[in-house]
Design a protein around this nucleic acid. Structure first.
Length: 442
RNA sequence: GGCGCGGUGGCAGAGUGGUGAUGCAGCGGACUGCAAAUCCGCGUACGGCGGUUCGAUUCCGCCCCGUGCCUCCA
């Protein structure tokens, strides 16, 4: 089962081959969970979590590193980090193998800067250390940006000690109030780009498989990491595949953080599905309409699963027993550059088949397959009945339903409808099945 | 201005050089005490103008619109 990924370096979809057979290193770059997670952060994290899960399924040994660039507010115990973690865990994110903090790798970062200086790629000037883009043959390879464009030169006058306007900061002198560290070049702090390079180098080595981030980081951040990486490994690329996820547009009707969405009552799976409803490289409009539609979609799938449970006398679907052939189309869609919209269409296909299934055995197979396919995406992790009943006063509702059932049996439909209406007003919808009545929040 | 990315039916959103996914909404039907759920059926969608081609939504050029980056900031 081949995996194809769109590589920003080649600007094509390429067949993925691990550098070392069976072992994959994944580095997720950029600002993550330094504060309460924003929707934009969440998209990146969810998308590359999906990739992480997929890699785990395809390769025996996967190392996922998610960098935390906390130079501005150092320390893994920063309270904001924990809040971010809680939200991300709730979204069903697999914890990366390590989440190195830039603030805890300043020794490695300084060593890396020193190595660059020693090799003639970095130079000190006015308390800074700068990377000399002229010292490598192909700066700009990733972003394909023409060198020396007019405006860049104008802006660079502010830092006139640069040898080349495109040179970027490896170390900068300390400023009052900001965290800093001692170094051979004085007290100060590392540039963001080298810090990330040091993290990936330290945890995954000089060359690893996949470097992932958002498009807005492509230039200059990733370009600079690429340049640094080349210098410490004889010109070889630090990562073979560079992935970029698209940005999120937030309409005014939606709060900017995941935590706020939770507080407004949006379920984690609804948020996750909304984030996966567009292909990861496409721009995503994250609005209430999208959330509403995602919830309707999950309701449809959970309804199918619930009916199958009922038919099977309460048995839950067993995703691990799903026939491979039924799950395969979903997996294949994900292996094709994480084509989540296509994968989701396969879930709909499974749900449709499940709804039409004639026998309990068939329903069991299809329910297992639907759950398994959903799990590939980190979805459908709840028990179906729970999905519809979360947070509600079950006992009281069951009593009312029993009263209504009695009324129906007695032919007192006026009373039955009154109870239905009462419950509907309380946000409870009733569903009369063959021999029983189920309910759900609406 | 430079370098990118995108514009698909009412909405969301894949995909493809030639039988036009999928979901939501809508319309018609089946089922139902009513309803819900479900099932069946229904839609001449590919920003504009040219070009290549037997044939383009899909390839090329130009234009329009939207959006991202253009540096040391996390």
């Amino acid at each position: 089962m081949p995996l194809d990924l769109h590589n920003s370096l080649t600007r094509r979809k390429d067949r993925f081959e691990p550098l070392r057979a069976g072992r994959v290193g994944l580095y997720v770059c950029g600002p993550t969970v330094c504060d309460e997670a924003t929707i934009t952060d969440a998209r990146k994290v969810v998308v590359f979590d999906l990739l992480h899960r997929l890699l785990l399924r395809l390769y025996p040994q996967v190392t996922c590193i998610r960098a935390v660039p906390d130079l501005a507010m150092p320390g893994p115990s920063h309270p904001a980090h924990e809040a971010g973690h809680q939200d991300l865990d709730a979204l069903g994110i697999l914890r990366p193998d390590r989440e190195p903090h830039a603030s805890e790798h300043t020794d490695q970062t300084i060593a890396l800067i020193q190595a660059l200086v020693d090799a003639g790629h970095g130079y000190a000037a006015a308390g800074h250390v700068l990377f000399s883009v002229a010292s490598i043959p192909r700066y700009g390879q990733l972003s394909r940006r023409p060198r020396g464009d007019a405006e860049g030169q104008v802006r660079s006058e502010a830092i006139s000690f640069k040898r080349d306007p495109a040179d970027f900061v490896l170390w900068k002198p300390g400023t009052d109030g900001r965290p800093g560290w001692p170094s051979p070049w004085g007290f100060g702090q590392p540039g963001w780009d080298v810090a990330c390079s040091a993290l990936s180098h330290h945890h995954l080595g000089p060359t690893f498989d996949i470097h992932a981030g958002t498009v807005d980081e492509l230039f200059p951040h990733h370009e600079n990491q690429l340049a640094i990486g080349r210098c410490v490994h004889d010109g070889a690329l630090p990562a073979r595949v560079w992935l970029h996820s698209g940005l999120v547009t937030l309409p005014d009707d939606v709060p900017p953080t995941v935590g706020q969405l939770f507080r407004k009552g949006w379920d984690a799976e609804v948020i996750r599905l909304t984030l996966l409803s567009a292909h990861y490289r496409q721009p995503l409009m994250f609005g209430t309409d999208g959330l509403t539609q995602a919830r309707a979609t999950l309701d449809r799938w959970y309804t199918a699963l619930r009916h199958a449970n009922l038919a099977a006398g309460g048995a839950r679907p067993a995703p691990d027993q799903a026939p491979d052939a039924l799950v395969f189309p979903t997996l294949a869609a994900l292996e094709d550059d994480l084509n989540t919209p296509l994968a989701l269409s396969h879930l709909h296909e499974l749900a449709g088949q499940l709804n039409k299934a004639g026998t309990v055995a068939e329903q069991t197979r299809l329910a297992a397959a639907l759950a398994a396919a959903g799990n590939l995406l980190g979805l459908l992790r709840h028990q179906a009945d729970t999905w519809f009943k979360t947070g509600l006063q079950n006992a009281a509702i069951e009593t009312r339903i029993a009263e209504r059932t009695a009324a129906r049996r007695a032919g007192n439909f006026a009373e039955a409808d009154r109870i239905r209406q009462d419950l509907a007003a309380a946000g409870i919808g009733l569903e009369d099945m063959a021999g029983t009545t189920t309910w759900k929040r609406t």
